[in-house]
Each structure stands twice: as structure tokens, then as C-alpha cells.
Write a protein that binds this DNA or RNA. Sequence first.
DNA 1: TAAGATTTGTTCGTATGTATC
DNA 2: GGATACATACGAACAAATCTT
Lengths: 255, 255
Amino acid sequence: MDKPAPRTPAPRDRRSRPTRVADAIKDWLVERNMAPGDRLPGETELMARFGMAKGTIREAMRILQAQGLIETRTGPGGGSFVGEVTADRAKALLANYFYFQHLSVADIYQLRRVLEPELAASLAGRLTDDQLHDLESVVARYPEPAKSAEEERDQHVASLDFHRKLANFSGNPLLAFVVSFMGRILTDLTVYRRLYDPPNRELYEKGRAYQIDLIAALREGRGDDARAIMQAHMQTAEALMQAQEAQVLRRFIAE
Amino acid sequence: MDKPAPRTPAPRDRRSRPTRVADAIKDWLVERNMAPGDRLPGETELMARFGMAKGTIREAMRILQAQGLIETRTGPGGGSFVGEVTADRAKALLANYFYFQHLSVADIYQLRRVLEPELAASLAGRLTDDQLHDLESVVARYPEPAKSAEEERDQHVASLDFHRKLANFSGNPLLAFVVSFMGRILTDLTVYRRLYDPPNRELYEKGRAYQIDLIAALREGRGDDARAIMQAHMQTAEALMQAQEAQVLRRFIAE
DNA sequence: TAAGATTTGTTCGTATGTATC
DNA sequence: GGATACATACGAACAAATCTT
């Protein structure tokens, strides 16, 4: 004899249908090795395939959209398409996580101290002239010491921009991402740091000298020099942030 | 005279309503400094507040849910609640980004090489007895060299587990996250690496010795030693992965 | 310019599922 | 068990965007 049917017809998935649909579609993308730009089935087809109502399917699509995996367009030829997750979106999503942790300036610099020099060393002798000129143009953006606290703040943001450009030149997507992410957090932070200190001329000259020396070392392929310069630069930068009592901001960053 | 009304009544946001609602709620969370567990307004109230239909509100909630920012429960006392973004979810979301980049083993080790030693050094003399015992129990999990390729693979996964535990002991959430994320990727990778090589006894002894030495150094607060041990360990580990022609897997990791 | 076709976007009403009391 | 409060899901209709002719 067969056993009586179990009271629970199936150990059925407790998660909502949209969630399951979203996961099913994700698996489907991987199986078919879909690439950014590839088209997904339309709403009506998905409704038929999953036997679910339009609203349910749409909620599933929103989940995928929120994760950056798809984009949708209306009109003829429209629909849902695989969308490469952009670095900016990934940073925004990751920032949501750190919104609930509290990162200190010291935490960030514990990584920066070792990653930025590593990055600099790995780029030595590998940058094109265009890339080097790009870096030089950032340095040239503020040829004079700041006259006001606001101007000094702008220079600091520009300096962080320098580091993020450097990160993006890296052939290592993981290194590029982490360094760039830290730069992003520090930029947000800088905008809100206290502004009542007078501009510090000496600090300006020092930071500028670092960047110029670094570019030279990178151009001439002196990896160890580039590493050493960056190490020294990081020490100064950390001390500066600490002295300014900078606080890591609790907010969601925009994508 | 007033200028004639512009043809476009307002430079109105092109994004869909659910997206805008999700962002509005996000801002609202930050403004009110809501903490995990706090309750959000119910669907009906949100419908009234935003003047939108249920489906639209629900899509917005799905977006927030996908990002890990809220959780929902049905039933009386149910509703939507602020949900702390878990580390696992953040890793899954970030993995979506790297699905479209291609990470090599060398890329990951470029970071591991510097971050793991830094982590080890920063933990020296700061671990509790419980934490140290926890690490020892991982080492004790495989007291003998592997007899089969499968067993060797299990040992490798356990070893990565050791590193992830170490990461989570760090007081630095950023360092913990990055190291743990790399461990996650490498674990996935290890499961699929080639298995036709015979177990390597010498390699086993070496890895085990590293971990035991490291625990001793951590216990006795010898930070520089811990760093040096980990540096040497990383070199071996990288060489091992390269020799095995391990490939970073293209798939979405489960949350 | 205008009309029509296609596809997502949004609404409304209703019904069902689920957890608490 | 029944009442209650909430999210979940469905289905039909209409709106808006965008492409083609």
C-alpha cells in the first residue's frame, strides 16, 4: 500500500513567487551563457512559461533590475535585456552593506596602506602616454595652493580622483574595484569634513610632489620607487584624515 | 509677461515609479535614522502616501528587498521591516558584478598576498582563547594527509575556511569583507578544479605547519612573525592554484 | 505629421494565504 | 475554531513609450 499523502503536499519553497522566478531566470541566464545586451522573453511569454500573473512576473523583473542584471525598455523592439552590472552599481550595492557596519578612517587606511602601493608598483612601466597625460591633467587642475578651506577640499577630492583613475588603469578588476570603492567612500567623507581649518600650504606642496614623483616613476618603469612613494603618501594622507577628525558618513550613495 | 509654458510640463523623472518610490523610501530611512528591525508603513499607507496603486508599491518593495534593505512578513503584526544587509547578501550582490569581469587566480592573489599578512599581523595578541581554539579545531579537522583527490579538495576548502574565520575575527569590517569575499570565490573555484592529480603529501604537511605556526604567533602576540608566516603561506598557495590551472568560475553565487 | 503596432508601465477590484489573537 | 490584519497573487483593463509606415 502507498503511504498516505503527507500533510504538506511538498516541502514547498517558502519564498515568494517573484523571488523564485527571479532565481529561475538567473539560472537560465547562466545556463545559456547570456551576455549583456541579449534579450529576455517578454512579459507575456514569461507569464505563460511560469503560469503566473503579470504582476508576479514584473516583481521578479524588478528584483533582477535592482541587482543590475537586466534593463527594460518599452515600445516595439523593447523588452528586458541582460545588463552588465556596472562598477558604480556594484559600489552602491556594497555601500548599502557598509551603511550598517561602521567603518572608521583607520579601517579604510589599513587596506589603502597596502593596496595603493601594490597598485602603483604593478602599474609601473605599463601605462600608455595617454594614461600618463590623463594623470598629469588631474595634477595640473590645481596648480596653486588653496586659498580657502573650500578650495582645499576641492583639491582633496581631485587627489582622490587621481587615485581612482590609477585604480581603473589596473588590469586587475578586483584591485581596481576595491581601491575605487575606498576612494568613493573617502570622497563622500571629504565633502562633509570640518572646514574651519585654514589651508595648509606645506601639505599641498607635499601632496603635489608625491603625485609628480609617482607619475615619473610610473613612466620610467621604476616599480619599487612607485611603491615607496605611494607608501609614504598613504602615511601622510592617513594622518591628515585623522587630524581632521573625519567621520565616515552614514548614508546610501547614489548609483 | 511670462514665458509660454514649456512643451514638456516638467523635466520629469524618466525612471519608473517603483524605482522612484524605492529611492524615496531609502532616503526616508536615512532621514529617520531607522535601524534594522524597525517597521515600515504598510502597503495601504504607502499607497495613500505616494498616491499609487498596490502593484507599484509592491514592485518598489521588491527592489528594496533585493538589495537586502527590507524584509517582509505576512500576517498580523507583519509588514515590512528594515533588514540589515547581511555579509552573505553583499557578497552575492558583488559576485554579480564579477560575473561579468573575468577574474584570474593571479588577480585574486595580488590582493591576498598583501591583505592576508596584514590581517594576520593586526590580529596578533588580540584573539580570545575561544577564537584561537576555534582556529585549532579547523586545523584538527584533517589530522592526516589526504588519501584521495577528493579528500585533498576537502582539506583545501577547510583551509580556506580557516582564512575566512580569521577574516571575521578582524575588527575591521572592510578588511573582513574583502578577505572573506576572496575566500568565497576561491572556495567555489576549488570545488571545480581538476581532480586527477594524486594527493601531495609534502604540500599537506607544509600547509598544516603554516597554520599551526600562525596560531602560535597569534597567541603570543608576535605580529611580525604572523605576517611573515602568512606571506610565505600565500606564496605557496598561489603557486598551488596556478599549478592546478584553476579557473575562476562564471556563475552567480547563492546567497 | 499622423496613424498604427508592439511592448512595458500602472491601476483597480477581488480573492487567497498566512500568522496572531 | 473563528476573527482579524496583513502580505500575496490574479485578471482585466487602460496608459505611456517607442518604433515603423
